[in-house]
Amino acid sequence: MALRNMVQALNLALRQEMAKDERVVVFGEDVARQGGVFRVTEGLLDQFGGRRVFDTPVSEAGIIGISTGLALAGMRPVCEIQFSGFMFNALHQLGLMAARYRCRSRGLFSVPMVVRAPWGGGVRALELHNESEEAVYAQMPGLKVVIPSRPRRARALLLASIRDPDPVVFLEPKRVYRSLREEVPDDEEVFPIGEAEIIRHGRHLTLITYGALLQECLQAVEQAERDFQVSIEVIDLLTIVPLDTRTIVESVQKTGRCVVVHEAPRSCGIASEIIARINEQCLLYLHAPVARVTGYDIPYPFFAREHAYLPNVPRILDAIRRTLEF
Protein backbone atom coordinates (compact mmCIF):
# COMPACT_ATOMS: atom_id res chain seq x y z
CA MET A 1 0.00 0.00 0.00
CA ALA A 2 1.11 3.52 -0.65
CA LEU A 3 -0.54 6.91 -0.35
CA ARG A 4 -1.32 8.16 -3.83
CA ASN A 5 -3.20 11.03 -5.35
CA MET A 6 -5.52 10.46 -8.30
CA VAL A 7 -2.92 11.35 -10.91
CA GLN A 8 -0.53 8.80 -9.44
CA ALA A 9 -3.27 6.20 -9.08
CA LEU A 10 -4.30 6.55 -12.72
CA ASN A 11 -0.69 6.46 -13.81
CA LEU A 12 -0.23 3.24 -11.86
CA ALA A 13 -3.22 1.66 -13.56
CA LEU A 14 -1.89 2.57 -17.00
CA ARG A 15 1.61 1.32 -16.24
CA GLN A 16 0.41 -1.98 -14.87
CA GLU A 17 -2.05 -2.67 -17.62
CA MET A 18 0.41 -1.70 -20.35
CA ALA A 19 2.98 -4.03 -18.84
CA LYS A 20 0.45 -6.81 -18.72
CA ASP A 21 -1.39 -6.33 -21.99
CA GLU A 22 0.55 -5.48 -25.12
CA ARG A 23 -2.59 -4.39 -26.91
CA VAL A 24 -2.89 -1.30 -24.73
CA VAL A 25 -1.74 1.88 -26.46
CA VAL A 26 -1.90 5.41 -25.09
CA PHE A 27 -2.12 8.55 -27.19
CA GLY A 28 -3.50 12.07 -27.30
CA GLU A 29 -2.40 15.69 -27.34
CA ASP A 30 0.80 16.16 -25.29
CA VAL A 31 0.53 12.76 -23.58
CA ALA A 32 3.90 11.31 -24.61
CA ARG A 33 6.84 13.66 -24.30
CA GLN A 34 4.98 15.95 -21.91
CA GLY A 35 3.27 13.17 -19.96
CA GLY A 36 -0.08 14.92 -20.34
CA VAL A 37 -0.87 18.44 -19.23
CA PHE A 38 -1.86 16.99 -15.85
CA ARG A 39 0.94 14.37 -15.95
CA VAL A 40 -1.35 11.34 -15.81
CA THR A 41 0.67 9.64 -18.55
CA GLU A 42 4.05 10.72 -17.19
CA GLY A 43 6.86 8.24 -17.79
CA LEU A 44 4.85 5.93 -20.06
CA LEU A 45 6.80 6.96 -23.15
CA ASP A 46 10.10 6.07 -21.48
CA GLN A 47 8.82 2.77 -20.21
CA PHE A 48 6.85 1.54 -23.22
CA GLY A 49 8.31 3.43 -26.18
CA GLY A 50 6.95 5.56 -28.94
CA ARG A 51 5.03 2.81 -30.71
CA ARG A 52 2.67 2.39 -27.78
CA VAL A 53 2.70 5.90 -26.36
CA PHE A 54 2.45 8.77 -28.82
CA ASP A 55 1.53 12.41 -29.20
CA THR A 56 -1.15 13.36 -31.69
CA PRO A 57 -1.70 16.56 -33.60
CA VAL A 58 -4.46 18.84 -32.25
CA SER A 59 -7.24 16.69 -33.64
CA GLU A 60 -9.97 15.40 -31.35
CA ALA A 61 -12.10 13.82 -34.04
CA GLY A 62 -8.90 12.20 -35.27
CA ILE A 63 -8.06 10.87 -31.83
CA ILE A 64 -11.46 9.29 -31.24
CA GLY A 65 -11.67 8.13 -34.84
CA ILE A 66 -8.33 6.31 -34.92
CA SER A 67 -9.01 4.98 -31.47
CA THR A 68 -12.15 3.40 -32.87
CA GLY A 69 -10.16 1.88 -35.70
CA LEU A 70 -7.49 0.56 -33.36
CA ALA A 71 -10.15 -1.02 -31.18
CA LEU A 72 -11.89 -2.55 -34.20
CA ALA A 73 -8.54 -4.14 -35.04
CA GLY A 74 -8.30 -5.72 -31.60
CA MET A 75 -6.07 -3.23 -29.85
CA ARG A 76 -6.95 -1.66 -26.50
CA PRO A 77 -6.59 2.06 -27.09
CA VAL A 78 -6.66 4.40 -24.11
CA CYS A 79 -6.78 7.85 -25.63
CA GLU A 80 -6.86 11.19 -23.90
CA ILE A 81 -8.88 14.26 -24.74
CA GLN A 82 -6.97 17.08 -23.09
CA PHE A 83 -10.08 18.61 -21.49
CA SER A 84 -13.44 16.90 -21.69
CA GLY A 85 -15.09 19.94 -23.28
CA PHE A 86 -13.03 19.39 -26.41
CA MET A 87 -14.82 16.09 -26.87
CA PHE A 88 -17.52 18.14 -28.56
CA ASN A 89 -15.13 18.31 -31.52
CA ALA A 90 -15.35 14.52 -31.79
CA LEU A 91 -18.93 13.73 -30.86
CA HIS A 92 -19.81 12.36 -34.27
CA GLN A 93 -17.01 9.83 -34.01
CA LEU A 94 -17.86 8.99 -30.42
CA GLY A 95 -21.63 8.93 -30.37
CA LEU A 96 -22.52 8.02 -33.92
CA MET A 97 -19.72 5.62 -34.74
CA ALA A 98 -17.80 4.15 -31.79
CA ALA A 99 -20.93 3.76 -29.67
CA ARG A 100 -22.90 1.99 -32.38
CA TYR A 101 -20.46 -0.42 -33.98
CA ARG A 102 -21.41 -3.42 -31.87
CA CYS A 103 -25.11 -2.88 -32.31
CA ARG A 104 -25.08 -2.18 -36.04
CA SER A 105 -22.88 -5.16 -36.77
CA ARG A 106 -24.88 -7.53 -34.56
CA GLY A 107 -21.82 -8.05 -32.41
CA LEU A 108 -19.42 -8.74 -35.25
CA PHE A 109 -17.40 -5.63 -34.39
CA SER A 110 -16.78 -4.08 -31.03
CA VAL A 111 -14.91 -1.01 -29.87
CA PRO A 112 -13.12 -1.74 -26.58
CA MET A 113 -11.58 1.67 -26.12
CA VAL A 114 -11.25 4.08 -23.23
CA VAL A 115 -11.48 7.81 -23.73
CA ARG A 116 -9.98 9.55 -20.72
CA ALA A 117 -10.54 13.23 -20.09
CA PRO A 118 -10.03 15.68 -17.24
CA TRP A 119 -13.52 16.91 -16.41
CA GLY A 120 -15.39 19.45 -14.30
CA GLY A 121 -14.63 22.86 -12.91
CA GLY A 122 -13.39 24.66 -9.86
CA VAL A 123 -9.74 25.13 -10.78
CA ARG A 124 -9.84 28.70 -12.11
CA ALA A 125 -9.30 27.40 -15.60
CA LEU A 126 -10.03 29.10 -18.88
CA GLU A 127 -13.35 29.03 -20.67
CA LEU A 128 -14.31 25.56 -22.02
CA HIS A 129 -11.90 23.84 -19.62
CA ASN A 130 -14.60 23.23 -17.01
CA GLU A 131 -17.39 21.33 -18.69
CA SER A 132 -19.51 18.65 -17.04
CA GLU A 133 -21.05 17.16 -20.14
CA GLU A 134 -21.65 13.61 -18.90
CA ALA A 135 -25.35 13.76 -19.71
CA VAL A 136 -24.40 14.14 -23.38
CA TYR A 137 -22.71 10.74 -23.34
CA ALA A 138 -25.53 9.26 -21.30
CA GLN A 139 -27.73 9.97 -24.32
CA MET A 140 -25.43 8.00 -26.61
CA PRO A 141 -26.43 4.36 -26.17
CA GLY A 142 -23.49 2.04 -26.52
CA LEU A 143 -21.15 4.13 -24.38
CA LYS A 144 -20.37 3.50 -20.75
CA VAL A 145 -19.59 6.50 -18.59
CA VAL A 146 -17.37 6.28 -15.52
CA ILE A 147 -16.53 9.14 -13.13
CA PRO A 148 -14.35 8.27 -10.15
CA SER A 149 -14.14 10.58 -7.17
CA ARG A 150 -11.11 9.34 -5.26
CA PRO A 151 -7.73 7.78 -6.08
CA ARG A 152 -8.30 4.18 -5.11
CA ARG A 153 -11.49 3.69 -7.08
CA ALA A 154 -10.06 5.73 -9.95
CA ARG A 155 -7.27 3.23 -10.39
CA ALA A 156 -9.52 0.20 -10.01
CA LEU A 157 -12.14 1.58 -12.37
CA LEU A 158 -9.62 2.54 -15.02
CA LEU A 159 -8.44 -1.07 -15.05
CA ALA A 160 -12.01 -2.25 -15.41
CA SER A 161 -12.58 0.25 -18.20
CA ILE A 162 -9.55 -0.87 -20.19
CA ARG A 163 -10.73 -4.47 -19.92
CA ASP A 164 -14.32 -3.67 -20.76
CA PRO A 165 -15.47 -4.97 -24.16
CA ASP A 166 -17.25 -1.70 -24.97
CA PRO A 167 -16.27 1.94 -25.32
CA VAL A 168 -15.92 3.73 -21.99
CA VAL A 169 -15.81 7.48 -21.46
CA PHE A 170 -13.68 7.91 -18.35
CA LEU A 171 -14.05 11.36 -16.82
CA GLU A 172 -11.51 12.49 -14.25
CA PRO A 173 -12.48 15.20 -11.75
CA LYS A 174 -9.43 17.41 -12.15
CA ARG A 175 -10.27 19.52 -9.11
CA VAL A 176 -9.28 16.57 -6.89
CA TYR A 177 -6.44 15.27 -9.10
CA ARG A 178 -3.86 16.18 -6.48
CA SER A 179 -5.78 17.44 -3.46
CA LEU A 180 -6.67 13.99 -2.10
CA ARG A 181 -4.44 11.12 -1.14
CA GLU A 182 -5.55 7.63 -0.37
CA GLU A 183 -4.06 4.24 0.25
CA VAL A 184 -3.88 2.62 -3.17
CA PRO A 185 -2.61 -0.96 -3.16
CA ASP A 186 0.38 -1.74 -5.34
CA ASP A 187 -1.21 -5.00 -6.35
CA GLU A 188 -3.82 -5.00 -9.02
CA GLU A 189 -7.30 -4.04 -7.93
CA VAL A 190 -10.36 -3.88 -10.16
CA PHE A 191 -13.67 -2.27 -9.30
CA PRO A 192 -16.60 -3.26 -11.48
CA ILE A 193 -18.22 -0.78 -13.82
CA GLY A 194 -21.90 -0.33 -13.01
CA GLU A 195 -21.63 -0.48 -9.23
CA ALA A 196 -22.20 2.50 -7.00
CA GLU A 197 -20.53 2.63 -3.63
CA ILE A 198 -22.13 3.42 -0.32
CA ILE A 199 -19.57 5.69 1.28
CA ARG A 200 -21.35 5.89 4.62
CA HIS A 201 -24.53 4.34 5.87
CA GLY A 202 -27.47 6.24 7.27
CA ARG A 203 -31.17 5.99 7.97
CA HIS A 204 -32.82 9.36 7.39
CA LEU A 205 -31.72 10.60 3.99
CA THR A 206 -29.85 9.37 0.92
CA LEU A 207 -27.35 11.76 -0.64
CA ILE A 208 -26.28 10.77 -4.15
CA THR A 209 -23.36 12.32 -5.99
CA TYR A 210 -20.25 11.64 -8.09
CA GLY A 211 -16.92 13.25 -8.93
CA ALA A 212 -15.20 16.02 -7.01
CA LEU A 213 -18.39 17.10 -5.25
CA LEU A 214 -18.23 14.00 -3.07
CA GLN A 215 -15.91 16.04 -0.85
CA GLU A 216 -18.43 18.86 -0.36
CA CYS A 217 -21.17 16.30 0.17
CA LEU A 218 -19.24 14.61 2.94
CA GLN A 219 -18.61 17.93 4.64
CA ALA A 220 -22.26 18.88 4.39
CA VAL A 221 -23.32 15.50 5.74
CA GLU A 222 -21.10 15.80 8.79
CA GLN A 223 -22.56 19.16 9.59
CA ALA A 224 -26.13 18.04 8.90
CA GLU A 225 -25.78 15.02 11.14
CA ARG A 226 -24.61 17.29 13.95
CA ASP A 227 -27.14 20.04 13.36
CA PHE A 228 -30.21 17.92 12.69
CA GLN A 229 -29.46 14.79 14.73
CA VAL A 230 -29.91 12.46 11.77
CA SER A 231 -27.84 9.87 9.95
CA ILE A 232 -27.34 10.23 6.22
CA GLU A 233 -26.42 7.63 3.64
CA VAL A 234 -23.98 8.80 0.98
CA ILE A 235 -23.83 7.07 -2.40
CA ASP A 236 -20.95 7.70 -4.77
CA LEU A 237 -22.25 6.66 -8.18
CA LEU A 238 -18.83 6.02 -9.81
CA THR A 239 -20.55 4.78 -12.96
CA ILE A 240 -23.09 7.01 -14.67
CA VAL A 241 -23.94 4.54 -17.43
CA PRO A 242 -25.05 1.88 -16.63
CA LEU A 243 -26.58 3.40 -13.53
CA ASP A 244 -26.71 1.26 -10.40
CA THR A 245 -30.44 1.65 -9.90
CA ARG A 246 -30.63 -1.09 -7.31
CA THR A 247 -28.30 0.55 -4.81
CA ILE A 248 -30.17 3.82 -5.22
CA VAL A 249 -33.61 2.31 -4.84
CA GLU A 250 -32.71 0.13 -1.87
CA SER A 251 -31.26 3.11 -0.07
CA VAL A 252 -34.22 5.37 -0.77
CA GLN A 253 -36.63 2.66 0.30
CA LYS A 254 -34.82 2.68 3.62
CA THR A 255 -34.45 6.44 4.12
CA GLY A 256 -37.48 7.85 2.30
CA ARG A 257 -35.61 11.04 1.51
CA CYS A 258 -33.10 11.83 -1.19
CA VAL A 259 -30.90 14.65 -2.45
CA VAL A 260 -28.89 14.41 -5.69
CA VAL A 261 -25.84 16.62 -6.23
CA HIS A 262 -23.92 17.31 -9.44
CA GLU A 263 -21.98 20.09 -11.12
CA ALA A 264 -23.62 19.82 -14.52
CA PRO A 265 -26.59 22.00 -15.49
CA ARG A 266 -29.86 21.03 -13.88
CA SER A 267 -32.31 20.36 -16.70
CA CYS A 268 -32.04 16.89 -18.22
CA GLY A 269 -28.99 16.19 -16.08
CA ILE A 270 -28.08 12.91 -14.42
CA ALA A 271 -30.13 13.89 -11.37
CA SER A 272 -33.22 14.05 -13.56
CA GLU A 273 -32.69 10.43 -14.55
CA ILE A 274 -32.09 9.32 -10.98
CA ILE A 275 -35.26 11.02 -9.83
CA ALA A 276 -37.21 9.41 -12.65
CA ARG A 277 -36.01 5.97 -11.56
CA ILE A 278 -36.87 6.67 -7.95
CA ASN A 279 -40.35 7.72 -9.07
CA GLU A 280 -40.71 4.58 -11.13
CA GLN A 281 -39.48 2.16 -8.51
CA CYS A 282 -40.05 3.57 -5.03
CA LEU A 283 -42.24 6.66 -5.20
CA LEU A 284 -44.46 5.52 -2.35
CA TYR A 285 -41.50 5.23 -0.01
CA LEU A 286 -40.78 8.93 -0.30
CA HIS A 287 -41.55 11.29 2.58
CA ALA A 288 -40.40 14.33 0.61
CA PRO A 289 -39.75 15.33 -2.98
CA VAL A 290 -36.26 14.42 -4.15
CA ALA A 291 -34.11 17.55 -4.19
CA ARG A 292 -31.40 18.49 -6.69
CA VAL A 293 -28.32 20.60 -6.09
CA THR A 294 -26.72 21.27 -9.46
CA GLY A 295 -25.10 23.79 -11.70
CA TYR A 296 -27.55 26.22 -13.24
CA ASP A 297 -28.92 26.03 -16.77
CA ILE A 298 -26.33 28.44 -18.10
CA PRO A 299 -22.96 28.10 -19.82
CA TYR A 300 -20.22 27.47 -17.29
CA PRO A 301 -19.09 31.00 -16.37
CA PHE A 302 -15.57 32.37 -16.69
CA PHE A 303 -13.66 31.55 -13.53
CA ALA A 304 -14.23 34.75 -11.56
CA ARG A 305 -17.88 33.74 -11.31
CA GLU A 306 -17.51 29.98 -11.00
CA HIS A 307 -17.88 30.03 -7.22
CA ALA A 308 -21.40 31.34 -7.72
CA TYR A 309 -22.16 28.54 -10.15
CA LEU A 310 -20.76 25.47 -8.44
CA PRO A 311 -22.75 23.60 -5.81
CA ASN A 312 -21.11 24.13 -2.43
CA VAL A 313 -21.57 23.03 1.17
CA PRO A 314 -24.20 25.67 2.06
CA ARG A 315 -26.30 24.77 -0.98
CA ILE A 316 -26.08 21.05 -0.24
CA LEU A 317 -26.84 21.64 3.42
CA ASP A 318 -29.85 23.72 2.54
CA ALA A 319 -31.24 20.97 0.31
CA ILE A 320 -30.70 18.41 3.05
CA ARG A 321 -32.49 20.63 5.54
CA ARG A 322 -35.44 21.28 3.24
CA THR A 323 -35.78 17.60 2.48
CA LEU A 324 -35.65 16.62 6.13
CA GLU A 325 -38.11 19.32 7.17
CA PHE A 326 -40.60 18.74 4.38
Partner: peptide, 21 residues
Protein backbone atom coordinates in the same frame (compact mmCIF):
# COMPACT_ATOMS: atom_id res chain seq x y z
CA UNK B 1 -18.70 42.55 -11.02
CA UNK B 2 -22.01 40.99 -10.10
CA UNK B 3 -21.80 37.19 -10.12
CA UNK B 4 -25.50 36.97 -10.95
CA UNK B 5 -24.85 38.49 -14.34
CA UNK B 6 -23.87 34.99 -15.37
CA UNK B 7 -27.59 34.47 -15.98
CA UNK B 8 -28.36 37.65 -17.82
CA UNK B 9 -26.94 37.05 -21.26
CA UNK B 10 -27.73 33.40 -21.83
CA UNK B 11 -30.76 34.34 -23.95
CA UNK B 12 -32.20 37.56 -25.24
CA UNK B 13 -35.03 36.90 -22.81
CA UNK B 14 -34.78 34.76 -19.69
CA UNK B 15 -37.38 32.05 -19.24
CA UNK B 16 -39.36 31.93 -15.99
CA UNK B 17 -37.29 28.87 -15.14
CA UNK B 18 -34.00 30.70 -15.44
CA UNK B 19 -35.33 33.69 -13.55
CA UNK B 20 -36.20 31.31 -10.71
CA UNK B 21 -32.71 29.84 -10.80
Amino acid sequence: ADPLEMFDFVYAELSPDLLAQ
